[in-house]
Simulated scan of single mutants.
Amino acid sequence: MSSVTTKIPYNSLTRFMTTLKLTQPITLSRSLSTTTETRTQKLERIADELLDLTKLERYDYSILFRHKMGLNRYGPALSGPSSAGAAAAGSGPPEAKAAAEKTVFDVKLEKFDASAKIKIIKEVRTFTDLGLKEAKDMVEKVPVVVKKGATKEEADSIAQKLKELGATVVLE
C-alpha cells in the first residue's frame, strides 16, 4: 500500500508564524487590546496544532479547508451567508440558467404509436450505429435514451423526425 505525500509550502507557513509573533496589538482601548491578544493567541495555538499534524493529516486538512472555503475544483461552494446573498442577487432561478447554458442533450424516446414501430426502428438506425436487432430491442424498452451527447441542432432534428412518426420525445 503506497502512502500519499504532498509538499507543504513551509516557507509560507513560517512567514505566517513570524508575522504573528511580530504583530503587536493596537491599544486604542483596553477591550480592543485584550481582543487582539486573544486573537493572536488563538492563531498561534492553531498554527502549533497544524505543525503537530502528520503529513497525511495535513493533506486531509488541506482538502477539507479548500472545500470549506469553496476553493475545490468543482466550483464555488453554495453554502454560507455570503453565497446566499450572491444567489439572491442573481437573476432568475438557477434551473433557468442551467437550461440556457446547456449545450449537450440526450434524446429520450418516451412512447410511440404501435402502428409506427417499424418506422421508428428504421429512424433510430439512421442516427445510431445499431443493427436492426439492437435498434428493435432499444425501441421496445421505452422509455429509453436513443441518442446521448447530441448538440442542440442535432437533438432538435432527431426529435422532430421522431415526432413526425408519432413518437413522444424529450430532450434532457
Rank of each mutant, 00 (worst) to 15 (best):
M1E: 04
M1D: 03
S2M: 10
T6C: 13
K7Q: 12
S12H: 09
S12E: 14
L13R: 11
T14Q: 14
T14V: 15
R15P: 03
M17K: 15
M17A: 11
T19E: 13
T19A: 10
T19K: 15
K21W: 08
L22E: 12
T23S: 10
P25R: 11
I26T: 12
T27W: 14
T27G: 13
L28I: 08
L28A: 07
S33N: 09
E37M: 14
T38H: 13
T40E: 11
T40V: 15
Q41N: 08
K42Y: 08
L43A: 13
E44S: 14
R45E: 12
A47P: 05
D48C: 06
D48Y: 07
E49P: 02
E49S: 11
L53Q: 05
K55C: 06
K55L: 11
E57M: 06
Y61L: 13
Y61F: 07
S62M: 13
S62E: 10
S62K: 11
S62W: 07
R66K: 15
K68T: 07
M69W: 07
M69Q: 10
L71S: 03
L71R: 06
L71P: 02
N72W: 10
N72D: 13
Y74S: 06
Y74E: 05
Y74V: 02
G75W: 12
G75P: 08
A77Y: 05
A77L: 14
S79K: 13
G80W: 01
P81C: 01
P81H: 03
P81R: 04
S83R: 05
A87V: 05
A89R: 13
G90T: 11
S91K: 15
P93H: 08
P94E: 06
A96Q: 08
K97G: 07
A100H: 04
A100M: 05
V104P: 00
F105H: 01
V107F: 04
L109K: 00
E110Y: 01
K111I: 02
K111P: 00
D113P: 05
A116I: 00
A116K: 04
K117E: 04
I120Y: 00
K122C: 01
V124P: 03
V124G: 01
R125F: 01
F127P: 09
T128S: 14
T128M: 12
D129Y: 10
D129L: 14
D129V: 09
G131Y: 04
E134M: 07
K136Q: 01
M138R: 09
V139D: 01
V139F: 02
E140S: 09
E140W: 06
V142N: 10
P143T: 00
V144T: 08
V146M: 03
K148G: 04
K148N: 06
A150I: 03
T151M: 09
T151R: 14
T151W: 06
E154S: 06
D156Q: 08
S157E: 15
Q160W: 05
Q160H: 11
K161I: 06
L162G: 02
L162S: 03
K163F: 02
E164M: 11
E164K: 15
L165F: 03
L165I: 01
A167G: 03
V170W: 05
V170Y: 03
E172N: 06
